[in-house]
Nucleic acid binder design. Sequence first.
DNA 1: TAAGATTCAGATAGAAATGTCTGATATATG
DNA 2: CATATATCAGACATTTCTATCTGAATCTTA
Lengths: 149, 149
Amino acid sequence: MSLIFSRQCEYALQAVLYMSAQSEKRFTNINEISERLDIPMPFLGKTLQLLVRSKILSSQKGPKGGFKLAKNPSEIALFHIVDAIDGTYFMTSCVLGFPECSSKSPCPVHSEWGVLRDRVHQMLANRTIADISKEITDSKQLRAKLGLL
Amino acid sequence: MSLIFSRQCEYALQAVLYMSAQSEKRFTNINEISERLDIPMPFLGKTLQLLVRSKILSSQKGPKGGFKLAKNPSEIALFHIVDAIDGTYFMTSCVLGFPECSSKSPCPVHSEWGVLRDRVHQMLANRTIADISKEITDSKQLRAKLGLL
DNA sequence: TAAGATTCAGATAGAAATGTCTGATATATG
DNA sequence: CATATATCAGACATTTCTATCTGAATCTTA
């Protein structure tokens, strides 16, 4: 199966989007997130721990504890989350899998793929949690998709 | 780890490219391909069998046997190979992993991602084995990358 | 027609990703 | 301070992907 992001990365993106729609001060616990987004709870826990270590989220134990964004939503791009979970290997690796592929020794689709990959990177780097959060707030459909409403 | 194609799909693409650089009538055996491209031989065998079932390659057993393209190289797009191995799930699935994502109920990056994904599809559908094969013939670097020379 | 070379089919093994479990640690609240 | 609730850490289990093994079927050639 071909894909872009690992399942764990998808979970991370969904969860941060969910949290971004919450009030800023509140901690959201993984039980709530996993129920709303249908993500296995312990695995989600592991996943969000990675985001805490990457300083994207902060956490608190105990009652009223949970996770929340560790910085201003406008400072968190989708790319930061992808990087924290999947890394940036896809930005440099050859799409055909040739181990030694570079601009000096390109594969047959090197330059074309480079353009497309850069566009993907731009999209991920440009779109921040802040602007997506605004979209979610403004759209009933999106709130439904995130298990809100 | 994020990626685009499965490893098996990368192997398939590399192997077909390798064969395309051979004379059309000749059968190329998996031993030769696996050595030149550093692909595990039995796994490559399984992989090429999938391409035979998809009518992209034909095969012959016995001495002088092996695999060769089953049709005109200009009729084989990269996309056909990807489709035969990995399928086209990546063309329709949500990049954020939301199970129900469509134009009627889009995720926050649905339309942007749609544009990028379509460009990837166009590239894979437009580039055929014929034109890549010509590039390989014309480029010493590419021949080296494919273990030729 | 016999021998060797090769793909083919199915079972097995190993590795990586995903998912689960248990107990430890920290925190809010009564 | 005790209790309940939550994250955290590490081990374990399951699933999927990748890789290997064995023998059967088929073809070429001497």
